[in-house]
């Protein structure tokens, strides 16, 4: 069985990352934006794992664990912030969070 070439993994990773980035940019719901960020992180994880396999090195996989840990912490803090914002402003629309401006 021949291995799938690394190029396919990179294309899939780029696609996932672009979808995530696009989601962050064009969606208005903060929770969706949040999920899109997770998607971007997981696209990066996917590329890490692909390179680890290609290069026969565990470094990439170790890095994935770090990213997952940080993502978990970020999710906890981020959701807490969103809940707190929602309690104050009764909305999760990012366009309305524009108090910090000129």
């Amino acid at each position: 069985m021949t291995a799938v070439p690394i190029g396919w993994f990179l294309i899939l990773g780029s696609l996932l990352f672009s979808i995530g980035a696009l989601g962050v940019l064009i969606r208005r719901n903060v929770i969706i934006i949040f999920m899109s960020i997770e998607l971007m992180l997981n696209a990066v994880n996917f590329v890490f794992v692909a390179f680890a396999r290609q290069l026969h090195s565990l470094d990439g996989q170790v890095m994935v664990f770090f990213v997952m840990t940080v993502a978990a912490a970020e999710a906890a803090v981020g959701l807490a912030i969103i809940i707190s914002v929602f309690r104050n402003r009764e909305t999760v629309n990012a366009d309305e969070f524009n108090l910090l401006r000129w």
Binding site: L25, I26, I33, A94, D95, F97, N98, L99, R101, W102
Partner: peptide, 17 residues
Amino acid sequence: WRRWQTGNVEHYAVSML
């Protein structure tokens, strides 16, 4: 120059990207 600080998260995200 302060007009650049829109306070809108998307604008910041776009410029970061």
